[in-house]
Design a protein around this nucleic acid. Structure first.
Lengths: 79, 79
DNA sequence: TGACATTATACGGGTAATCGTATATACATT
DNA sequence: AATGTATATACGATTACCCGTATAATGTCA
């Protein structure tokens, strides 16, 4: 899953959290942050610091990864 | 390339920048930040904000990606 | 509807990121 | 060595993250 802004990051966090049946407060505890912060991040309201991003992903058993930008592929719906 | 802390992120940025034969000031301009900030980030001195991370990676034609954490693989050196 | 659980928002305070700018340090080339 | 180039560091100012805490808003379910 590729991330281009805060909103997309928040969506990924929320989906992953719900998939694991965690409440915001549960994820917050695992990542050592506030429930309020999880809420703000999931809503794309803030630009979290890198270490916060990593802590939250770790709590969700996910990794941050850097990849070469994918070239736009042919999209038949555009024709 | 997986990223677990600020230092690892900085290393990836520096390597990618050098591979593209860019100076810090060049990358800074492309990402709309200061040369000093590129320096600090490459040295792992700060925890950049997510939008800053994304801007810099975009300037390097790279994407931030979220992936499931890889399971630990069998490591023969531990036996 | 009422009670409970979950999420979103608010406030003040502390700290860190980022800025513009300037300079110091390190590196390279002649 | 001297000059030019690149990177690292410094400084004060501004912005924004993150905190603890509390509460408002929303959702759920009997």
């Amino acid at each position: 899953m590729t991330i281009r802004n805060n909103k997309e990051f928040g969506e990924v966090v929320r989906i992953a959290r719900q998939k694991q049946k965690l409440r915001q407060v549960d994820l917050a505890r695992k990542a050592s942050v506030r429930q309020a912060l999880i809420s703000e991040i999931e809503n794309g309201a803030i630009s979290a610091k890198l270490d916060t991003v990593i802590k939250i992903l770790a709590a969700l058993d996910m990794d941050l990864s850097i990849v070469p930008r994918k070239k736009a592929e042919f999209d038949p719906t555009e024709y």
